[in-house]
């Protein structure tokens, strides 16, 4: 039986750093997502307030989608730098 990767992977000295970074960013995003869900569940009227000309709900929605991409790009940049530094 063979469970290993389909392609041969080299040793990744940056994996520990990347794991910690990933967990940290995951916590940040999860807290913001939880706040969004929490407000909707407990006080949905707040989401009808107007912010920047839109309902707060629309701003939160765009914000969560945009934040996911921003965090993803930052994560990739930091991971790539760590890989270049630690795997040379």
């Amino acid at each position: 039986m063979a469970h290993g990767p389909a392609v041969k992977l080299g040793k990744d000295n940056a994996s520990g750093y990347k794991t910690k970074l990933g967990v940290m960013m995951f916590i940040v995003y999860t807290l913001i997502y939880a706040a969004f869900v929490g407000i909707n569940a407990t006080n949905p009227h707040l989401m009808q307030n107007i912010i920047f000309g839109q309902t707060a709900a629309v701003v939160w929605g765009f914000g969560l989608i945009g934040l996911a991409l921003v965090l993803a790009v930052i994560y990739n940049n930091l991971c790539t730098k760590a890989e270049e530094k630690l795997n040379d």
């Binding site: 063979a2 990767p5 992977l9 994996s15 794991t19 995951f26 995003y29 993803a72």
Partner: peptide, 20 residues
């Protein structure tokens, strides 16, 4: 969409490293 954050930050690289 938020679910992809879990995939990226926690699962993507380990899944690649461990699976076949």
């Amino acid at each position: 969409l938020a679910g992809w954050i879990v995939a990226l930050f926690l699962v993507a690289e380990p899944m690649k490293r461990l699976g076949k």
